[in-house]
Design a protein around this nucleic acid. Structure first.
Lengths: 210, 210
DNA sequence: CAAGATATGTAACGTTTGTTACTGTTTTCA
DNA sequence: TGAAAACAGTAACAAACGTTACATATCTTG
């Protein structure tokens, strides 16, 4: 746990804070697909992402999903923070996109550290800042782009965070995350294949040139 | 300025902090329509809204706008804070929706106060929290609703923040803020009029029953 | 291996939204 | 006051997206 923490946060936090985190934090490893948090659930701690990728999703009344953004190494979930401090329920769902290692810090320390450690304060603010920007990005994409452009972005991002040119998802999976329908996604994917940008296979998509 | 500040933030901040704000802050009154901040501009201070309403807009590459949310009395702009601390350019545009009174606090005090005053820290976190939730709301609306539902929400919100049953905007204005076209908005407004929810006039819309 | 489940391809059609074009009315201002 | 600008209504059409239906291929499992 020490090495993991230092590798991701060592040059960010001072020694004393690192030691504090080690004392009160819980180390956790979860497999891809693991649901870390759900809408309406209460939050017990703040996650510090050590390795892996977590996807953050929003849901409407009908249970339809929408991918908001990904969290990566060195990130934390501001939404969680916001909820912790306000003691409210989670507004989002968090699912491990890959196998993920993280450290959970109990909420009561967050406020204290914010007044005590400048590095922690910066980290928290930076995190909020990043998350607001991710949200702006999401809004840009859904408000200003058509589905074909959104699909392209989706494939690029997915390929990037997984560090893999092959995307292991069905058309239905993609439709869920983009809040569209399977038929629409199949149609657009076929177009991308026809112009040579991807190769379609059962259960996976190979990216050739985006 | 003292009365204004105490009325809006008196029971939120301790005496000492209030005095600090009075010392370093600048009082400002701007008319409706005044552009307080634009995309790409650098930010000199953090605004504390004393009275009035500010609308926050996002723009795409083609210059098309989208209304994100409103700021009201007691609010501040987290986006500004994020930009201040990161020393980056503004990602959004802020325009006074009504005549507005606000106090501008120079950035250098923000970080200091965050470590010094618990009430300020709470205010800042609460503000981030609120803004994240507003953004989630915006995403919900544009991702999960059709234009007719979005238009209804728009009219309700606009009526609420202005505390006025009459909305003084042209169809073109509304089309800009919803990122749609004038013809579409006229069409949908006419539908709302036909079912008795509103009354259309030149340059204004009277809300009857939403 | 056979039967069902899952994944994908595609056609046909409906709905929503956007675009173009033209109309008439009201306002502005030289 | 008279021309131009701004505002709103509406028709006709196009594009994007969603839905239903069905066919085919592949995988899973008893």
């Amino acid at each position: 746990m020490i090495q993991e923490l230092k590798a991701s946060y060592g040059n960010l936090f001072e020694e004393e804070l690192i030691n504090n985190i080690l004392q009160v934090g819980t180390y956790k490893e979860v497999p891809a697909g693991f649901k870390l948090m759900d809408i309406g659930s209460y939050i017990k701690g703040m996650p510090l992402l050590v390795s892996g990728v977590i996807k953050i999703l929003r849901e409407d009344k009908n249970g339809d999903e929408l991918l908001l953004y990904y969290l990566e190494k060195g990130d934390t979930c501001s939404m969680t923070m916001a909820c912790c401090l306000g003691q409210t329920k989670s507004e989002i769902r968090a699912i491990a996109e890959t196998n993920t290692k993280l450290i959970i810090v109990p909420i009561q320390h967050i406020e204290l550290w914010t007044s005590k450690y400048k590095s922690w304060r910066n980290f928290v603010f930076e995190s909020y800042h990043n998350r607001l920007n991710e949200m702006l990005n999401t809004i840009d994409t859904i408000a200003f782009n058509n589905m074909d452009q959104r699909l392209l972005n989706y494939l690029k991002e997915k390929s990037r965070v997984n560090n893999n040119n092959t995307i292991h998802n069905t058309h239905q999976d993609i439709a869920y995350e983009l809040h569209s329908s399977r038929v629409v996604i199949s149609r657009l994917l076929k177009k991308l294949e026809n112009i040579g940008k991807i190769e379609l296979h059962r259960n996976y998509i190979k990216i050739k040139d985006l």
